[in-house]
């Protein structure tokens, strides 16, 4: 008998979180880093929905929070991609290591 419980969802979420952190730390491409951020936000959503499903008193804060996180992720992606476009127009690359004019 194999039942899917909260722990399984949390392990899935932790795995997605680790993928996201790995991508954020290793990518030099700005869009790549943003994809890592999206992965972390997805692991947050899995967490929210799973915790909400398994809470004993039947509130739905977590489901609502997950919806808001989806909206936040979309808004952030829109702004971030626009800003990356702008960088590309200025220096013809979105490699974050090449953005070294500001330092010190």
């Amino acid at each position: 008998m194999f039942l899917i419980g909260l722990t399984h969802y949390l392990i899935l979420s932790a795995a997605v979180l680790c993928c996201g952190l790995f991508v954020m730390m290793t990518k030099r491409n700005a869009i790549g880093i943003l994809i890592g951020v999206e992965l972390v936000l997805n692991s947050v959503n899995i967490n929210f929905v799973a915790f909400d499903r398994y809470r004993p008193d039947g509130g739905f804060d977590g489901q609502v929070a997950a919806l808001f996180v989806i909206v936040l992720a979309a808004a952030e992606a829109a702004v971030a991609v626009a800003i990356c476009m702008n960088l590309y127009k200025n220096i013809n690359t979105i490699d974050v290591d090449r953005g070294d004019a500001l330092h010190g």
Partner: peptide, 8 residues
Amino acid sequence: AEASVKYV
């Protein structure tokens, strides 16, 4: 442009 990319 560079500042806003770093910030975002």
